[in-house]
Design a protein around this nucleic acid. Structure first.
Lengths: 218, 218
DNA sequence: AATTCTATTTAGATTAATCTAAATTATTTA
DNA sequence: TAAATAATTTAGATTAATCTAAATAGAATT
């Protein structure tokens, strides 16, 4: 059993490793967790003692098998709770993160099994992120960035790469929600911006920055 | 804002006051929270500083208005989560307490408003205990002890006075669940035991101790 | 290769929550 | 009411998590 704090460190290491695929450094953990480098070092020693991370001074850290297993279960819990909040309690996708940050630390396998079942064992959360199975494996997704589509290609909005509240609210306003089908009408060679047509016919203009952060399934 | 620990102390004081209606003493708090009297004294000073309790050395404590308000909100959260666990996730009534102990500390008014609404604003939890409203008021209940009924009286099982897992499991086995109607067939003058007839015709024998701990609505 | 800059670690404190053991106050009992 | 017992508080430590400031290691730059 580990404390909520330890769990948050493991999750942070997991997320940082996921994007860089190399040993995670002290400062980046400190930044994510809003704490100081010295505190991170202290915790790294503790987690290393518990054999949850591989740690060599000045060399950054990676998760051990056991550490990764724990991190994946926290991610699983976080994402399942997000589905619950959106599907059952009608929260919007930009409102659920903070509550799920708290709920992810509730300790009960039985609870998560039943919740997953109650939600029909969803494979993706409301942002399109895959939900690890109980055993820790992910559903493969074939998402590509919307910006990669060519003119006239059609695809379904399936996820985001930027999870910030402001980005999610922007998409909400454009009615670009998960599951919606869109067709690329025009792409500008100059700035990479594009014009989309939504299912219902509406035309939507997107900057390259935005289309980069939207994931779709062709 | 108060810590989870502080919340647990407030809830303990609330529950102890509820049964005795007099200033709560140090040892009883220590016993409920599985801690030592010295730790309780430390916390009493802290809660008194925050004006959440009235504390005079050696005299026991009571909750202030503000302390009671917080305690009631925790009770509200606990009981609403219990309803969720039983009604939606099909937990049995003897399985939900520990999980609700964790869930009651999740901080989000919005979450509890939506959950209450999702559950159809229940006024009683799965053990028949009343759920405080958002404002802190209780639904009045007219429950009486099953042992108080006379022969031939009919009533509906509506709550329990003993919340222990073993008692709840015993009732479960007898199929004496919330909502069931029963009629008193016979009462023994000698030991206070009684014979009940359930809706479906089954005859059930109960000791005085058990019927004392069952609450019914005539 | 020496210097500068940046990242990381160490040393030493702090805060919240807890504990044991000793001291004190309150209550009960003879 | 004095002595014995029980309850409570104080004193002083401990543990987890954090911090600041100083020291050290590693990387980048001239």
């Amino acid at each position: 059993m580990q404390s909520q704090t330890e769990e948050n460190y493991l999750k942070a290491i997991y997320k940082l490793y996921e994007v860089s695929n190399e040993a995670v450094n002290t400062n980046s953990i400190a930044e994510i967790l809003n704490t100081k480098a010295a505190s991170v070092t202290d915790m790294m020693k503790k987690l290393a003692d518990k054999k949850l991370i591989n740690y060599t001074k000045y060399q950054g850290v990676t998760l051990t098998k056991e550490g990764e297993k724990i991190a994946l279960q926290i991610v699983r819990k976080h994402r399942l709770w997000e589905v619950f909040l959106v599907e059952k309690l009608n929260f919007k996708w930009d409102e659920v993160h903070d509550i799920a940050e708290e709920l992810e630390h509730i300790n009960s396998e039985e609870l998560m099994d039943r919740l997953a079942n109650y939600l029909d064992n969803p494979r993706f959360d409301p942002h399109g992120d895959p939900i690890p199975s109980k055993g820790g494996s992910f559903a493969k997704n074939e998402f590509v960035q919307l910006s990669k589509l060519k003119e006239n290609e059609k695809a379904k909005i399936s996820g985001v790469r930027d999870h910030s509240i402001s980005f999610l609210q922007y998409l909400e306003k454009l009615k670009l929600v998960l599951g919606k089908s869109v067709t690329v009408l025009e792409k500008s060679d100059y700035d990479g911006s594009m014009q989309l047509q939504a299912e219902e016919g509406t035309v939507i203009y997107l900057s390259k920055e935005v289309s980069n952060n939207i994931l779709v399934l062709k």
